[in-house]
Computed example of a mutant assay.
Amino acid sequence: MSVHLVTGAGSGIGAAVARRLLARGDELWLLARDAGRARQLADAFPGARTLVGDLAVPARLSWALEKQALPDRLDSLLHSAGTVDLGPVGDLTPKLWEHTLAVNLVAPAELTRLLLPQLRLSRGTVVLVNSGAGLQAHAEWSAYAASKHGLRALADSLRAEEQEHGVRVTTVYPGRTATPMQQKVHQQEGKSYDPSRWIDPESVATTVLSVLDLPRDATIPDVTLRPAR
C-alpha cells in the first residue's frame, strides 16, 4: 500500500486526486488549515488521516507538525493547494503579495523540507501542481504568476538535489481547469463562467496518478495540460 500526503484536498484538483487514491486503497494523509477543516476532510474522505497546518503561515508549519503523529514513510507528497488574486501591480498591496507567496511557494518549500526524510526513505515522488501562469505571466496576474514561476524554480532545484536520494520531482502545468478557484478567477475578470470549456479536474488527477505509477526506471520532470477546445 502506497502512502500519500495531499494538500488542497478540499476542492478541485486536490479533491479529485485524493478521491482516486482513496478509491484504490492507498493510505491517504490530508493537510488541513485548522481543526474544523480537518473534520470536514475526514468526513469527505472516510479512512483518510488528517494533519493540521496553515499554509498561509509557513513559519509555523514545523511547530504544528511537531505536535502531531506523522507518517513513517511517504510515497508521494502532492502540493495542490493554492490561492489567487488578480490585479494590476499598481494596486496590489504587500499583504496580498505576502499571502500569495506564502501559500503558493514558501509553504510548499517548507512542507517538503519537513517531510524529506519520509520521502527519501521511500524514494518517493513530489508532485507540484503549478499552472500555465508558471510558464508565462499576463497582465493583472503578477502575484500569482510570480509565485508559480518560483514554484517552478523550487521544483527544478529540488529535482537536482534529491536525485541522489531517489526522490522524483514532477511539475504539472494545467491550463484553466473547472475548479472553484477558476470560478473565482472568472469573477475577478468580470467574465461568465462555463466549466464545460475547461479541463475537468479528473483529467488532471489522471495525469498525476500516471506520474505516481511510473516505473522506477523513468521520471517525468514536467507535464503540461491544456483545454482541448
Rank of each mutant, 00 (worst) to 15 (best):
H4E: 00
T7M: 09
G8L: 05
G10V: 07
S11L: 11
S11Y: 08
I13D: 00
G14P: 06
G14L: 05
G14A: 13
A16H: 02
R20T: 13
A23F: 10
A23S: 13
R24F: 14
D26W: 02
D26T: 05
E27S: 05
E27K: 05
L30I: 08
A32T: 03
D34G: 12
R37A: 15
R37P: 02
D43W: 08
D43C: 07
A44P: 06
A44T: 08
A44L: 12
A44I: 03
P46S: 13
G47T: 11
G47L: 12
G47W: 09
A48H: 02
R49P: 01
L51W: 01
L51N: 01
A56D: 11
P58W: 04
R60P: 02
S62Y: 02
W63G: 11
A64Y: 02
A64N: 09
L65Q: 07
P71Q: 12
L74M: 10
S76P: 00
S80Y: 01
S80D: 04
G82M: 00
G82V: 02
T83L: 13
V84C: 11
V84R: 09
V84T: 06
V84A: 10
D85Y: 10
L86T: 14
G90H: 15
D91W: 15
D91I: 06
P94I: 10
K95P: 05
K95D: 15
T100I: 13
T100D: 08
A102D: 14
L105V: 07
A107Q: 04
A107C: 11
A107F: 11
A107E: 03
A109D: 01
E110T: 14
T112P: 01
R113P: 05
L116V: 12
Q118G: 07
L119F: 09
L119R: 00
S122L: 05
R123V: 00
R123P: 00
V126K: 01
V127K: 00
V127H: 02
L128N: 14
L128F: 10
A133W: 02
E140A: 15
S142T: 15
Y144H: 15
A145Y: 03
H149F: 15
H149V: 04
L151Q: 06
L151F: 05
A153T: 14
A153Y: 06
A155G: 15
D156H: 07
R159L: 03
E161S: 10
Q163R: 12
H165D: 13
V167S: 01
R168S: 01
T170S: 10
T170V: 08
T171E: 06
Y173D: 04
P174L: 11
P174Y: 03
G175W: 03
R176C: 04
R176F: 08
T177G: 06
T177N: 06
M181E: 07
M181H: 07
Q182F: 01
K184A: 08
V185A: 10
H186A: 15
H186G: 09
H186F: 13
Q188H: 12
E189G: 08
G190E: 07
Y193M: 08
Y193F: 12
D194I: 11
S196F: 09
R197C: 12
I199G: 00
D200M: 11
E202V: 14
E202W: 07
V204N: 03
A205T: 03
A205F: 02
A205N: 07
A205I: 04
T206Y: 07
V208P: 01
L212W: 02
D213V: 00
R216N: 10
T219C: 10
T224S: 11
T224V: 13
R226L: 09
R226F: 07
R226S: 09
P227E: 03
